[in-house]
Computed example of a mutant assay.
Amino acid sequence: MDCMVTQLKNYEGLTVNATQFINSWGGSVVGPDGKTPTVDSPEAKAGLTALVDGYNSDVIAKRSNGFDEEATNNAFVNGEAMYAYNWPYMYDNADSDGSGDKPKSAVQGKFAVAPIVGENGPGASTLGGYNLAINVNSKAKNTALDFIRFMESPDSQMSFAENAFPPVLASIYDDPTLAEKYPYMPVLKTALENAKPRPVTPFYSAVSKGIRDNVYAALTAGKSIDQAVTDISTVIKNAGQ
């Protein structure tokens, strides 16, 4: 049995995992201006070192270097791993008794949810989800605003929660009926209160690719942490040029 599985395939999921380790050890990737690299700080290096050391020591399963969310889900639900990092959708799969449209889980009734690991206690999860905005050129701004208000309403957010999508309203997490159905809701609320956004930069696509390419090389090709953060920093500096 694997100790832990997570998403270390060279795609956006690796950016999420890498930034979780960086943020959980007190580091960051870019400064407030979205252009200045900060990933070469001692804290950021410590977080990436923890990720790579965990991988090299098999605390994080080697096969995770080919895992996306669904592969992680399948490994945990099938009873192949003690721990897994994943989005909340995995809860329903892990808790399935096989009576509905999901196959029976090997860990049904035998698992719990906790915040991700940090250097000294719970770490900082990485945020991700739907972003609602109104295009400045829209000819239906009022209608768009009405739609945003509808999506952010308590009824809509409760529907999100009932389908394993974390709601944006803190009050939803305190609903006793929902907490009874999904016991992880209080833990998820705590995790979100400590969560950090993905690197906030106008050049996100390039920065994300720089992170995952270099962290993947540190995991699988022996690239040193120092060289990885140097190369990520170079990507950030060049992204706006």
Rank of each mutant, 00 (worst) to 15 (best):
D53L: 10
G54Y: 00
Y55R: 05
Y55T: 01
Y55I: 03
S57H: 04
D58Y: 10
D58S: 09
I60A: 02
I60L: 03
I60K: 00
I60V: 08
A61P: 07
A61D: 02
A61K: 03
K62L: 07
S64H: 00
S64K: 02
G66P: 03
G66Q: 11
G66W: 05
F67A: 05
D68V: 11
D68N: 11
E69N: 15
E69H: 15
E70F: 15
E70Y: 13
A71N: 10
T72P: 00
T72Q: 00
N73I: 14
A75G: 07
A75N: 08
A75W: 07
F76Y: 11
V77C: 02
V77W: 00
E80R: 11
E80G: 06
E80M: 11
A81P: 04
M82C: 15
M82V: 13
Y83C: 13
Y83T: 07
Y83E: 11
Y83I: 08
A84R: 01
A84S: 06
Y85F: 12
Y85N: 12
Y85R: 08
Y85T: 06
N86P: 00
N86M: 00
W87V: 14
Y89V: 14
Y89F: 14
M90T: 10
Y91D: 04
Y91I: 07
Y91W: 15
D92I: 12
N93W: 15
N93C: 14
A94R: 03
D95G: 13
S96H: 01
S96Q: 03
S96T: 01
D97P: 06
D97K: 07
D97W: 08
D97G: 08
G98F: 02
G100V: 07
D101M: 13
K102A: 05
K102R: 14
P103H: 04
P103R: 06
K104S: 04
S105W: 00
A106E: 14
A106Y: 03
A106G: 05
Q108E: 10
G109P: 01
F111I: 09
F111Q: 06
F111T: 06
A112F: 13
V113F: 14
V113M: 13
A114G: 08
A114S: 10
P115I: 08
P115F: 08
I116E: 13
V117N: 07
V117G: 04
G118T: 05
G118I: 07
E119Y: 08
E119G: 09
E119S: 11
E119N: 10
G121R: 04
P122I: 03
P122Q: 01
G123Q: 05
G123T: 01
T126H: 06
L127C: 03
G128M: 05
G128N: 07
G129T: 03
Y130D: 10
N131K: 10
N131I: 10
L132K: 07
L132E: 07
I134M: 02
I134N: 02
N135E: 15
N135P: 09
V136A: 15
K139H: 12
K139E: 12
